[in-house]
Design a protein around this nucleic acid. Structure first.
Ligand code: ZN
Ligand code: ZN
Ligand code: ZN
Ligand code: ZN
Lengths: 167, 167
DNA sequence: AGATGTATGTTATATTATAACAAGGAGATA
DNA sequence: TATCTCCTTGTTATAATATAACATACATCT
């Protein structure tokens, strides 16, 4: 099995990045994934993924519903939750529990236990690599408990907001 | 400043422990804390803490409301949420996001970034020491982000439930 | 007693999420 | 082509979780 190359964009959303390339690459990866797995990349799914990708801002389900309405889609809760479930199952989105909101995954494709840094001031969210997070999941699994999944959310201040607050 | 002695009971709820002693010690610690900080340990607060302590099972706010009703207290949502907020602020309870439920803290007194192990089968929750969790918060703080708080929840199977599932 | 501050009680409502079932459409099968 | 099957989308209703705003009670201090 070939090792995935490291992701170029958006590994840290707090930094500037080439977002056009980031957006296009993500969309293409999603399309490719759906073809490979024989899943239907419908207009609805594509649109929701686009919303999440647009500026990496976490979106609540009801925000997404509003955006869908504006785009001419049906907009009752199950519509959004179903698509979000799909995106999460396929590894192209995550739920941020702290915000009850959803973000596009920053390194789709590879299975991973994402760690998030959430700015309590601007609500921006960065998804970081396991190796950079200070987390050692192997160490976490004790003989008392079999860890299957880790939900890790750091809350604090991003660089911009730290600066503002220091003023 | 004197170093806190290690907690004797319930550091891992999946293990058997002397629960009578655990219960009494926790109650006393809570009483002592309230006296020291000049906070009122009212019957309501005491009762809710007792519920949480009873068998370490995480309780939802509405479960607690039912139990309060049975004990002759008022039982509209703010009643429970306010007491829970109080217990959390004082460091005697935590919220488990995965379960939308609340547990008594296993090592109250010392400030800590709790890490939880949550059994997806029986919903039991153990709070573990930072040093045992495989988490290094200092390492997690990058120059891009100032970590103030960490929410860490491991989901998996406790020993009993692993055994059952293997059958 | 009167003033103050905190805790509790009450009413209403906001926010987030799911259950259950109906309708539509693409592709396979006959 | 007709029909079957599967999956997606649409609809209606409701569950589950949480908070806002305001009223009352009650202790403590003066
Ligand atoms: Zn981008
Ligand atoms: Zn920020
Ligand atoms: Zn105990
Ligand atoms: Zn279990």
């Amino acid at each position: 099995m070939k090792k995935e190359p490291p992701q170029k964009y958006a590994s840290k959303i707090f930094k500037k990045h080439n977002h056009n390339a980031c957006f296009n690459d993500s969309m293409k990866a999603f399309q490719k994934h759906c073809v490979q797995k024989n899943l239907k990349l419908t207009p609805l799914r594509s649109k929701v993924f686009e919303f999440l990708l647009r500026d990496h801002q976490p979106l609540g389900a009801y925000q997404i519903l509003d955006m869908l309405r504006d785009s001419g889609f049906a907009s009752t809760p199950p519509i959004a939750y179903r698509v979000l479930d799909f995106l999460i199952e396929q590894g192209f989105a995550h739920k941020i529990k702290r915000l009850n909101a959803f973000v596009a995954c920053s390194h789709p494709g590879s299975t991973h236990s994402p760690t998030f840094m959430i700015c309590r001031k601007c609500d921006k969210v960065a998804e970081i690599d396991e190796k950079d997070s200070g987390i050692d999941l192997k160490k976490a699994t004790s003989f008392d408990f079999k860890v299957e999944e880790a939900v890790i959310e750091f809350i604090g201040l991003c660089t911009s907001c730290v600066t503002v607050e220091a003023t």
